[in-house]
Protein backbone atom coordinates (compact mmCIF):
# COMPACT_ATOMS: atom_id res chain seq x y z
CA UNK A 1 0.00 0.00 0.00
CA UNK A 2 1.50 3.37 -0.98
CA UNK A 3 1.71 6.25 1.49
CA UNK A 4 -1.32 8.08 0.10
CA UNK A 5 -3.54 4.98 0.28
CA UNK A 6 -2.35 4.22 3.81
CA UNK A 7 -3.23 7.74 5.03
CA UNK A 8 -6.68 7.40 3.44
CA UNK A 9 -7.20 3.98 5.07
CA UNK A 10 -6.03 5.28 8.45
CA UNK A 11 -8.41 8.23 8.21
CA UNK A 12 -11.29 5.94 7.33
CA UNK A 13 -10.56 3.62 10.24
CA UNK A 14 -10.35 6.61 12.57
CA UNK A 15 -13.64 8.00 11.28
CA UNK A 16 -15.42 4.68 11.66
CA UNK A 17 -14.04 4.32 15.20
CA UNK A 18 -15.23 7.84 16.02
CA UNK A 19 -18.72 7.20 14.65
CA UNK A 20 -19.00 3.86 16.42
CA UNK A 21 -18.17 5.54 19.77
CA UNK A 22 -20.98 8.05 19.33
CA UNK A 23 -24.22 6.77 20.77
CA UNK A 24 -27.43 8.06 22.28
CA UNK A 25 -27.91 7.06 25.89
CA UNK A 26 -31.44 5.63 26.16
CA UNK A 27 -34.16 4.72 23.71
CA UNK A 28 -34.53 6.65 20.45
CA UNK A 29 -38.31 6.86 20.95
CA UNK A 30 -37.82 8.70 24.24
CA UNK A 31 -35.31 11.04 22.59
CA UNK A 32 -38.02 11.98 20.09
CA UNK A 33 -40.34 12.63 23.05
CA UNK A 34 -37.56 14.76 24.59
CA UNK A 35 -37.54 16.97 21.49
CA UNK A 36 -41.34 17.25 21.60
CA UNK A 37 -41.28 18.18 25.29
CA UNK A 38 -38.55 20.77 24.75
CA UNK A 39 -40.62 22.37 21.98
CA UNK A 40 -43.81 22.32 24.07
CA UNK A 41 -42.25 23.78 27.21
CA UNK A 42 -40.26 26.23 25.08
CA UNK A 43 -43.48 27.74 23.76
CA UNK A 44 -44.79 28.05 27.31
CA UNK A 45 -41.57 29.73 28.47
CA UNK A 46 -41.69 32.25 25.62
CA UNK A 47 -45.37 32.97 26.35
CA UNK A 48 -44.48 33.63 30.02
CA UNK A 49 -41.68 36.02 29.02
CA UNK A 50 -43.92 37.87 26.53
CA UNK A 51 -46.76 38.28 29.02
CA UNK A 52 -44.37 39.48 31.70
CA UNK A 53 -43.06 42.10 29.32
CA UNK A 54 -46.64 43.22 28.61
CA UNK A 55 -47.82 43.14 32.25
CA UNK A 56 -44.72 43.84 34.39
CA UNK A 57 -46.61 45.00 37.51
CA UNK A 58 -48.88 41.94 37.62
CA UNK A 59 -45.95 39.55 37.08
CA UNK A 60 -43.73 41.32 39.63
CA UNK A 61 -46.49 40.96 42.23
CA UNK A 62 -46.99 37.31 41.32
CA UNK A 63 -43.30 36.50 41.44
CA UNK A 64 -42.95 38.31 44.79
CA UNK A 65 -45.42 35.78 46.26
CA UNK A 66 -43.18 32.86 45.26
CA UNK A 67 -40.60 31.39 47.63
CA UNK A 68 -37.32 31.37 45.68
CA UNK A 69 -35.64 29.54 48.57
CA UNK A 70 -38.07 26.62 48.28
CA UNK A 71 -37.56 26.71 44.51
CA UNK A 72 -33.80 26.46 45.02
CA UNK A 73 -34.27 23.48 47.35
CA UNK A 74 -36.46 21.84 44.70
CA UNK A 75 -33.71 22.50 42.14
CA UNK A 76 -31.20 20.83 44.45
CA UNK A 77 -33.54 17.83 44.81
CA UNK A 78 -33.81 17.41 41.03
CA UNK A 79 -30.02 17.75 40.65
CA UNK A 80 -29.57 15.16 43.41
CA UNK A 81 -31.96 12.89 41.51
CA UNK A 82 -29.98 13.40 38.29
CA UNK A 83 -26.78 12.62 40.17
CA UNK A 84 -28.31 9.42 41.57
CA UNK A 85 -29.57 8.38 38.11
CA UNK A 86 -26.16 9.00 36.52
CA UNK A 87 -24.44 7.04 39.30
CA UNK A 88 -26.98 4.24 38.85
CA UNK A 89 -26.30 4.05 35.10
CA UNK A 90 -22.53 4.12 35.75
CA UNK A 91 -22.89 1.35 38.35
CA UNK A 92 -24.86 -0.83 35.92
CA UNK A 93 -28.07 -2.86 36.38
CA UNK A 94 -26.55 -5.11 39.04
CA UNK A 95 -25.95 -2.23 41.45
CA UNK A 96 -28.34 0.46 40.28
CA UNK A 97 -31.20 -0.22 42.67
CA UNK A 98 -30.06 1.90 45.63
CA UNK A 99 -29.23 4.80 43.31
CA UNK A 100 -32.67 4.60 41.74
CA UNK A 101 -34.28 4.57 45.17
CA UNK A 102 -32.31 7.73 45.93
CA UNK A 103 -33.69 9.38 42.81
CA UNK A 104 -37.22 8.28 43.77
CA UNK A 105 -36.73 9.86 47.21
CA UNK A 106 -35.62 13.10 45.51
CA UNK A 107 -38.75 13.00 43.33
CA UNK A 108 -41.01 12.46 46.34
CA UNK A 109 -39.26 15.32 48.15
CA UNK A 110 -39.76 17.62 45.15
CA UNK A 111 -43.46 16.78 44.92
CA UNK A 112 -43.99 17.25 48.67
CA UNK A 113 -42.34 20.69 48.60
CA UNK A 114 -44.20 21.71 45.46
CA UNK A 115 -47.47 20.45 46.91
CA UNK A 116 -46.88 22.61 49.96
CA UNK A 117 -46.19 25.60 47.71
CA UNK A 118 -49.44 25.01 45.80
CA UNK A 119 -51.34 24.76 49.09
CA UNK A 120 -49.90 28.12 50.24
CA UNK A 121 -50.53 29.76 46.86
CA UNK A 122 -54.06 28.39 46.34
CA UNK A 123 -55.94 31.17 48.21
CA UNK A 124 -54.20 33.81 46.07
CA UNK A 125 -54.51 32.12 42.68
CA UNK A 126 -57.03 33.23 40.07
CA UNK A 127 -56.14 31.45 36.84
CA UNK A 128 -59.05 33.02 34.92
CA UNK A 129 -58.26 36.65 35.74
CA UNK A 130 -54.47 36.62 36.07
CA UNK A 131 -52.11 35.71 33.22
CA UNK A 132 -49.34 35.17 35.77
CA UNK A 133 -51.40 32.70 37.78
CA UNK A 134 -52.53 30.84 34.64
CA UNK A 135 -48.97 30.48 33.32
CA UNK A 136 -47.50 29.71 36.75
CA UNK A 137 -50.02 26.91 37.36
CA UNK A 138 -49.86 25.71 33.75
CA UNK A 139 -46.07 25.51 33.48
CA UNK A 140 -45.24 24.28 36.98
CA UNK A 141 -48.25 21.94 37.05
CA UNK A 142 -47.32 20.36 33.72
CA UNK A 143 -43.75 19.98 34.97
CA UNK A 144 -45.05 18.47 38.24
CA UNK A 145 -46.82 15.76 36.21
CA UNK A 146 -43.52 14.99 34.47
CA UNK A 147 -41.75 14.65 37.84
CA UNK A 148 -44.53 12.28 38.94
CA UNK A 149 -44.16 10.19 35.77
CA UNK A 150 -40.35 10.05 36.06
CA UNK A 151 -40.57 9.09 39.74
CA UNK A 152 -43.01 6.26 38.94
CA UNK A 153 -40.80 4.98 36.10
CA UNK A 154 -37.67 5.01 38.29
CA UNK A 155 -39.64 3.34 41.08
CA UNK A 156 -40.67 0.53 38.73
CA UNK A 157 -37.06 0.12 37.54
CA UNK A 158 -35.91 -0.01 41.18
CA UNK A 159 -38.49 -2.68 42.01
CA UNK A 160 -37.43 -4.74 39.00
CA UNK A 161 -33.83 -4.45 40.24
CA UNK A 162 -31.30 -6.68 38.50
CA UNK A 163 -33.81 -7.79 35.86
CA UNK A 164 -33.54 -4.34 34.25
CA UNK A 165 -31.32 -3.99 31.18
CA UNK A 166 -28.77 -1.19 30.84
CA UNK A 167 -30.86 0.21 27.96
CA UNK A 168 -33.95 0.44 30.18
CA UNK A 169 -31.87 1.99 32.95
CA UNK A 170 -30.48 4.64 30.60
CA UNK A 171 -33.97 5.35 29.24
CA UNK A 172 -35.45 5.83 32.73
CA UNK A 173 -32.54 8.09 33.68
CA UNK A 174 -33.04 10.11 30.50
CA UNK A 175 -36.64 10.84 31.50
CA UNK A 176 -35.42 12.20 34.83
CA UNK A 177 -32.68 14.29 33.21
CA UNK A 178 -35.30 15.82 30.89
CA UNK A 179 -37.37 16.81 33.93
CA UNK A 180 -34.22 18.32 35.50
CA UNK A 181 -33.25 20.21 32.34
CA UNK A 182 -36.74 21.72 31.97
CA UNK A 183 -36.80 22.77 35.62
CA UNK A 184 -33.44 24.54 35.36
CA UNK A 185 -34.99 26.92 32.80
CA UNK A 186 -38.40 27.05 34.51
CA UNK A 187 -36.92 27.88 37.94
CA UNK A 188 -34.73 30.65 36.54
CA UNK A 189 -37.58 32.12 34.48
CA UNK A 190 -40.46 31.97 36.98
CA UNK A 191 -38.66 32.35 40.34
CA UNK A 192 -35.43 34.25 39.69
CA UNK A 193 -35.62 36.27 36.45
CA UNK A 194 -37.18 39.52 37.62
Amino acid sequence: MDRRSRIHADSLVGWVALVSEERLSGDLALWLVVLLELATFGLGFVAFAAMRGAQPVLFAAGQARLDAGAGAVNTALLIAGSWACARGVAAGPQQARRWLMGAVAAGLGFMALKGGEYARQAPHLDVEASAFDALYVGLTGFHFLHVLAATVVLGILAVLGRRVSLHALETGALLWHLVDLLWLVLFALVYLWR
Binding site: L38, G42, A49, A50, R52, G53, A54, P56
Partner: peptide, 21 residues
Protein backbone atom coordinates in the same frame (compact mmCIF):
# COMPACT_ATOMS: atom_id res chain seq x y z
CA UNK B 1 -29.51 24.89 20.43
CA UNK B 2 -32.88 24.67 22.19
CA UNK B 3 -31.30 25.77 25.46
CA UNK B 4 -29.66 28.88 24.01
CA UNK B 5 -32.51 29.55 21.56
CA UNK B 6 -35.24 29.44 24.18
CA UNK B 7 -33.44 32.05 26.33
CA UNK B 8 -32.86 34.27 23.30
CA UNK B 9 -36.53 33.87 22.34
CA UNK B 10 -37.60 34.71 25.89
CA UNK B 11 -35.46 37.84 25.85
CA UNK B 12 -36.94 38.96 22.52
CA UNK B 13 -40.49 38.04 23.61
CA UNK B 14 -40.11 40.02 26.83
CA UNK B 15 -38.82 43.03 24.91
CA UNK B 16 -41.62 42.81 22.32
CA UNK B 17 -44.21 42.35 25.05
CA UNK B 18 -42.98 45.49 26.79
CA UNK B 19 -42.81 47.43 23.52
CA UNK B 20 -46.39 46.60 22.53
CA UNK B 21 -47.91 47.08 26.02
Amino acid sequence: GWLVGVWLAMGVAGWLGAATA
